[in-house]
């Protein structure tokens, strides 16, 4: 069973971290559709975090459609195409910030494309996300 990563020191709300982590795990294919997720109890115990926080993260993930709950059995990753709008918006914003800096530095469009490709090819990027 795959557990999400949580850093209690980061200052980011823990339920947010749990959600983000599941989104990433799903996107990376580390969790298969219809695969069962750890129960609230398991996850809370494993990470030493508040079960109510886990509950809240699961509830929101269910609302977002990433997971579905089967009463009495637990939570599972859904197979439906995920709503990526939220993520797209987030990425778009980061790009905009970067483009602002690039423009003020006088970096051209083609150079910017190269830079993006370089970044994608950088090793271990997926490890240091967020």
């Amino acid at each position: 069973m795959v557990y999400p990563e949580v850093n209690t020191q980061s200052g980011v709300p823990i339920y947010q971290q749990v959600k983000n982590s599941y989104h990433r795990l799903a996107a990376l294919g580390l969790i298969e559709p219809h695969e069962q997720l750890p129960s609230v109890r398991q996850l809370a115990m494993e990470l030493g975090i508040n079960p109510n926080t886990v509950q809240k993260a699961y509830r929101e993930l269910e609302q977002e459609g990433l997971i579905y709950a089967v009463p009495g059995r637990g939570n599972f990753l859904s197979d439906s195409q995920r709503e990526l709008d939220v993520e797209y918006e987030e990425i778009r914003r980061s790009f905009r910030s970067a483009i602002h800096i690039a423009w003020t530095a006088g970096i051209e469009r083609t150079k910017l494309h190269e830079l993006l490709d370089d970044c994608i090819d950088e090793p271990h990027l997926s490890d240091k996300d967020e």
Binding site: V40, R41, A44, M45, E46, G48, I49, N50, P51, N52
Partner: peptide, 8 residues
């Protein structure tokens, strides 16, 4: 972890 289990 123990407290989390009791709460759950």
């Amino acid at each position: 972890r123990i407290l989390a289990r009791q709460v759950a």
